[in-house]
Design a protein around this nucleic acid. Structure first.
Lengths: 230, 230
DNA sequence: AGGTATCGTGTGGTCCAACCACAGCCTAGC
DNA sequence: GCTAGGCTGTGGTTGGACCACACGATACCT
């Protein structure tokens, strides 16, 4: 037995997924049954399930009934967010790296967009309206995150969406910490709102290239103001 | 105690990392000591360490001496690779999504590159030389992966490098499965080699834009040939 | 007959007390 | 001075025992 016990359990579950014996939404057999079938201890099965849970593949719930047990789910963000957050914490990734990656992602998403029907941009516009009222930096940032994510979502690539969301959340604490240090929050918020409208205008006119360039400058300028990059 | 036991352990370790009480390369206290200090069982501590290990933050080794114990490391790829691989397996992400993301990444990397000193491109050129001799599709693919990764590395963003590497490995099995189905492998390999040289030529002349466009078509054309996308 | 309180059962969550394999260190013996 | 052996602490694994939980069935009372 070269591989560790919990690894054999993961391999078994992954194999069941690949061979379609386990599909999205299916429930896994009980931990005790699985342990017995694979000839390992329940502890090892639990380690494996815990790992798959942090990878966003399985969700476990105690109790009984339809919602209980271990179920195959699809939550690609959890592992990405947790991993990035921790790697930024240990300084193996810098906040600047994350911001650069975000610029790449967002400008890619906008550049590829065709002229959009007005109703597709409606959710983003509503977020802009909400941001008009938001004076609190924390609330503003929250809406801002949703706004940018909503726009990237229009590109229709779920993987890019997951990465985008994870990038934001991995440096959220740094952004929020920086907010109070901003010189003139009101002035900056006003500028950010105007830039948001300009990006949406570009997209609604089918000028994804312009929106992309605006977004790049929008993101980098704020990051500079917040002292997140030099 | 609302949070689960293993979560409190993760929070404690993450807190130690954020406050720099734990730095890259440091060794964690023993599992038994940590369990005792936090008032949880060793089982829960082990679950937490196992999770952090799959997130690429901690590496554990049994035995004694300098290499033993749990150590803080920085391996951003492991979690990304595992997560993407499994999410592609459950069809929550498609191979096409992954390929599109890779095109984004690679073209971004090349577009941002200035004219490069010849020695920076030397490793890539050597991989091209090796690929001239590689007739076996598996060996060719292996070198191809290294080649593209080497070029992206020139952009100098470790996060992008990690994502790039994870994207490749998450769909590697699909690419390798598709290789035998290719109509005329020799002809395709010849074309791929020529395209590789053209990309390197673009970069060596400081024309990142051209290299990016060539890379986009290079990747998408092969994906179409291999039946990975339509 | 209809509602309601109760119990039974199976789930994951936690803990404990062992034992194993491993690798460095230290000591006794040559 | 050197080598072989045991000592010690590490993570890895196991079995068994509880717990809290939530559903479903059952028994009960009205």
């Amino acid at each position: 037995m070269s591989a560790q016990a919990y690894e054999t359990v993961i391999e078994e579950i992954e194999s069941m997924i690949r061979s379609k014996r386990l599909k999205l939404g299916d429930r896994l057999e009980g931990e005790r049954a699985l342990a017995d079938r694979l000839g390992v201890s329940r502890t090892s099965v639990r380690e494996a399930i815990r790992v798959l849970s942090t990878l966003g593949i399985i969700r476990s719930a105690p109790g009984s009934g339809p919602s209980a047990g271990a179920q195959v789910v699809a939550d690609p963000e959890v592992a990405l967010s947790a991993s990035l957050r921790l790697h930024v914490a240990v300084d193996s990734l810098s906040v600047g790296d994350v911001i650069d990656a975000r610029v790449m992602l967002e400008s890619w998403a906008y550049r590829g967009l065709p002229r959009l029907p007005a109703d597709l941009l409606q959710p983003a516009r509503e977020l802009l309206d909400a941001m008009e009222q938001a004076d609190d930096p924390v609330e503003f940032h929250h809406l801002d995150t949703q706004f940018h994510l909503e726009l990237v979502r229009l590109a229709g690539n779920p993987l890019v969406n997951a990465i985008m969301s994870s990038l934001r959340s991995s440096i959220e604490s740094y952004v929020l910490d920086a907010a109070p240090r901003l010189e003139d929050w009101q002035a900056i918020a006003t500028r950010l709102r105007a830039e948001h409208h300009a990006i949406v205008a570009g997209l609604s006119e089918g000028d994804g290239e312009r929106a992309a360039r605006l977004a790049e400058e929008h993101i980098l300028a704020f990051a500079r103001d917040a002292g997140l990059i030099s």
